[in-house]
Amino acid sequence: MVKARKKITLLLAGGTALLDQNKRLLTVQSPEDIELWLKQMPELGLLAEIEPIFVSAENDILTPEHWQAIARQIAERLETSSGFVVVSRADQLLLTANALSFLLQNIKKTVVLTSALRSGTTEIKQKNIFGQKNDLGLRSNLINAFQVLDYSLPTPAIMFGTRLIPGVRAINDHDQGLNIFASLDDNYWGRVDFGISVKAGLSFHTAKTKLYEKIKANILVFDDLPGLAWDLDFAKLKNYEAIFIRLNHQNKLEPVKIKQIKESPYPVFLYHPTQVQGPDEAIAMSNCTFEAALAKAMWAIANKDALSQFTQIGEQNIIGELI
């Protein structure tokens, strides 16, 4: 079957490191770098007509403004683009994928995120990986990401190494070499062996598309360990809109901690991967990845007024993030 040529939008937000034929490091630090950068991968032109969009420089740390910008660019092109590939920092790819998943709910175009193995020129130099033959993985990752756009994926997905993973289920994998991401519940949407095999039956959500413009990061995030105290001085937390506590245990919280949560003028999210034991005043988040829970909290805080049941947000399976 001969398919029509795709017109894809390539959003660049870090994670762009590749080596040219002389093993020189090339990244996209400004819009002016894009032409030379793309020239290193002329083969991409075989797969699609590419519209590149600069979002942030290789060394930039991504913030909600960047995620909002990516979502806005995608929303503006939903009618005209065949699909979207977001190249973004590997160390922030999980949160980026989750942020986009909550901002772009039920869209009817495929969004795939990918990256080079390392992000930021400082980190690359420190790791001294210029001699690597794999060219930091970006070329293959991009080719596979472009190819995946032929499929209707329900939510933004991460294509990295040999795995295609739903963004809301993706976690770090430190044991698998080039596969630095895995799926929390072993649910993969595709694998690369000889070409890409994408799981049968995937389709866009039939629910109405909901596009959100805002996501907020003014949330105080910290880990709780049993026996180690935390003392929240709410007067000093004026710049925050919420508190997000990751529980490193399944014990009941100590009374002094419960008291602080009850007295908090800000919404308090309590996260544990499987089970949360906390006071009713807290918003329990479980059965999802940490990044999914955090992105959900960031999205919920930013869109609080539009959400009818804000305090029950942890139990609502908004985009398939709950397992």
Binding site: M1, K3, L46, R139
Partner: peptide, 17 residues
């Protein structure tokens, strides 16, 4: 007879590798 999407994928893959 002509380059289809899969052929394009393999060509791109081969060049990249």
């Amino acid at each position: 007879q002509k380059l289809d999407a899969q052929a394009g994928y393999w060509l791109a893959w081969a060049v990249s590798k």
